[in-house]
Design a protein around this nucleic acid. Sequence first.
RNA 1: GUGGAUGUAGCUCAAUGGCAGAGCACUUGACUGUGGAUCAAGGUGUUGCGGGUUCGACCCCCGUCAUCCACCCCA
Length: 428
Amino acid sequence: MKNIIQPLKGTRDFYPQQMAVRNWLYGKIRKISEAFGYQEYDGPFLESINLYAAKSGEELVKEQSYVFPDHSGDLITLRPELTPTLARMVAQKQAQLTFPLRWWSFGPFWRYERPQKGRSREFFQWNIDIIGIDSPQADAELITIIASFFKEIGLLSQHARVMVNSRKLIDAELAALEISPEKRIGLFKIIDRRSKLSPAEWEAYLLDFGLSASQYKSLISILNNTSLWEKSPELVTVFSTLKAFGVEDYVQFDPNIVRGLDYYTGIVFEGQEIQGEFRRAILGGGRYDNLLADVGGQPLPATGFAMGDMVISLILEKYGCLPVNIGENPAPVFITIFDENSRSTSYSLAMQLRQNGINVTCNLETEKLSKQLKYADRLGARIALIVGPDEQNNHTVTIKELKAGIQQTINQSELLSTIRSILEKPLT
RNA sequence: GUGGAUGUAGCUCAAUGGCAGAGCACUUGACUGUGGAUCAAGGUGUUGCGGGUUCGACCCCCGUCAUCCACCCCA
């Protein structure tokens, strides 16, 4: 045991049970994405470091990306996020694509940071974007997707919601307080941290940052004004669209949401657990209208969001939304090997069933029957088949229903139909 | 990068300076053609690693590694 090489910090082993959860989540993501007409895509996991330079958050690239030289000395980056890749892919084929385009993806990402609850160094992320349309209805569509996703996986609006804001709106409000443009960028980050600090700490932070007492007071009233959105025509459109889609229960205006990444330009939003100990955002996104031009394409408006697999899994676990009985043996039928005489009969029965679409686990050794049945039971098989000397002589097979605790012996020619009818019965 | 907690059997944990234990799990048998239940018998171990203090260390001290939690940042 002590000689086993440790897995890398911040990575996860997906044992069958965890793999099943991951695939379940992937399936839900696919279902919702496709329900809104989005196409799946993916990019390389390795990218040139240049792709990320100055486009994402400074720290995300400089401190938190895995960067290493390849054999030619080029600096390679394990992708820390997908949006720059998406921007490049779109820019490369801009003339051939049909806009607005709706694309989604689910895959692995890497960020070098200290692992903690809901955060690891290797994680999976759902990315979904709509590119080539600047109307707020596009942002509203994405928020509707989030609400639909929450509903689909069993989260109610009292569990999780989407907080929505507009960077443009807040920027204009800050400008009205005569705060300089450079300072406003710094202020976004401080606003983003408000919920993590006590009011007194936060006030000290802001005064230290250089706000006057009156500017601080005005800022507080801006950030506490729950009807501030009425001043933003975009937000007005977003909320009326969300109402039309019937998902307004899941959405809330929150002027404190500004998001950390530098490329967001307008509407921003964040999925949050409502009653909770999870202060971490479930997902985050917003409009990034300049990114396409920044990577060398024609200017194209875009909006989208990303959701990591870890926080959502924690929340699903908390609310008991994770499916039960997944990750079990995919084969409902287990066939025992009684002795050497009947071995080939057992094998050929197994193959017959498989060729007819029934999954079968085959015992490979002639162990004691009790041992084989115990093994079948542990694998979670529903049916065990026995071909002993009696069955061998009479061309029959014994079908034991493990969960029901009953068994019958039938002619081998009736095996397929009998198994099928047993599997059709619901488990009690 | 900063701060805090933890590390004992396969798992969950006890043992506060005096012979390392319990439950679960596991193996075998009761049951030579029948799993789950019950009963009986059985291995569970470099107490993360290295050093120190002590007659004696799982326990105290120093170092180190790992894990978890929080901060930073963010999905």
